Simulated scan of single mutants.
Amino acid sequence: MNNFEDLIEKEYSNIAGIAIRKDNYLIYEKYFDEYTQDDALHIASVTKSIISILIGMAIDKGYMKNIEQHVLDFFPDYTVKRGEKTIQNITIANLLSMTAPYKYKSEPYTKVYSSDDWVKAALDLLGGKGSIGVFNYSTVGTHILSGVLTTATGQSVLDFATENLFKPLSIKAPTNTTIQNKEDYFAFLKDKYVTGWIVDPKEVNTAGWGLTLTTRDMAKIGQLYLNGGVWNGRQILSSQWIEDSTKVQSRSGKLTYGYLWWILDDCYAALGDGGNVIFINPQKKMVISIASRFMPRAKDRVELIRKHIIPLFE
């Protein structure tokens, strides 16, 4: 154990916390660099997997019919530019499985996040000459799903998440946080202590990034999936959604993807920049959550989990 913790401090220096659950119990918890169990961190693209959960809940509750609905069904006031046909055929499933085409070669983060309506800015980029069904990972495009949730439920994403996910799991709901410029954005990424959930100028919470959670919170969400959607004896998410969202729905080479979850052989994970992870191993009934400070090109957490964590705790 000492060797393991030394390894973390020497080779994975941006890790703030690790929590491991096995057979429904928290069996290990350790914090580094003066962080504690109460400190939230920006979980980056792990936010996407939380949005997947919320889409599943919205379907369970009848706010949405199914994921084969067309994206534009939820934006009746959106005007499609003349001659554009592809966007009209894109479904919610395409956004969830990263199989929607876009009109850019590299993601125009600044263009979207400096606009006064991020959902509309993302819709303006949707479609183009690419093919529907081809894997095309997009963070800005994922924001459209927050617009879908807001339209479908009549609530903000945060309110819907608080009522249906955070409160049942005894997770302290974040507050809305805004960014005004690049300096705010980089401060949110790099400051040691951050809280909240980023909202756009229309107060729509981000879907591709921007949520802060504690290491324990992340482990609870993993446990909810491992439990088939049951928490404290209550079914809060359908087991069918969990099954669908964590099986292969799209692929790119050796990479396989579900509905905003990465599929890793017999395991699956929510993966975020800097090394934020919710890793679920159904066979061993293990959940491993790792919260990390922002660091470009952080060392591979899946390798750490497979090589060092699972053998130590299985």
Rank of each mutant, 00 (worst) to 15 (best):
K190Q: 07
K10C: 11
K10E: 15
V230K: 00
I144M: 03
D39G: 08
L169D: 04
W197D: 00
L264M: 14
V140G: 01
D60M: 04
S138C: 12
Y113K: 02
Q180C: 14
S292C: 08
R251T: 14
M286Y: 07
I67H: 11
G133K: 08
R82V: 13
E68S: 14
E5P: 09
K247S: 15
K307W: 09
K299H: 13
A93V: 07
I87N: 05
W118E: 02
Y28H: 00
G222Q: 04
Q235G: 05
L165I: 04
A291K: 04
Y113E: 05
P76V: 12
L7G: 07
K81E: 15
I278N: 05
D117A: 03
A173W: 10
V119K: 00
D159E: 12
N281A: 12
S106R: 14
E9N: 04
V80A: 11
G62W: 07
I278G: 03
P174M: 02
Q180P: 12
L226C: 00
G130W: 02
N66F: 14
T47S: 06
T175R: 12
Q180E: 09
G272A: 09
E68D: 15
L7T: 06
Y268E: 09
I290G: 02
T215F: 05
D38K: 12
P311M: 08
F4N: 02
S170T: 10
D159H: 12
K172P: 10
I242H: 01
D266Q: 14
K192Y: 11
E303T: 15
N136H: 10
I50K: 02
N24H: 07
I198Q: 01
K65A: 15
S146V: 08
T91Y: 10
Q180G: 15
F135T: 06
T79A: 15
I67K: 10
V194D: 08
K61E: 02
S114T: 11
Y185N: 08
Y35H: 06
A187V: 06
W197T: 01
T256K: 15
R21V: 00
I305R: 03
Y102S: 02
G258R: 07
Q180A: 14
Q240G: 10
T212Y: 12
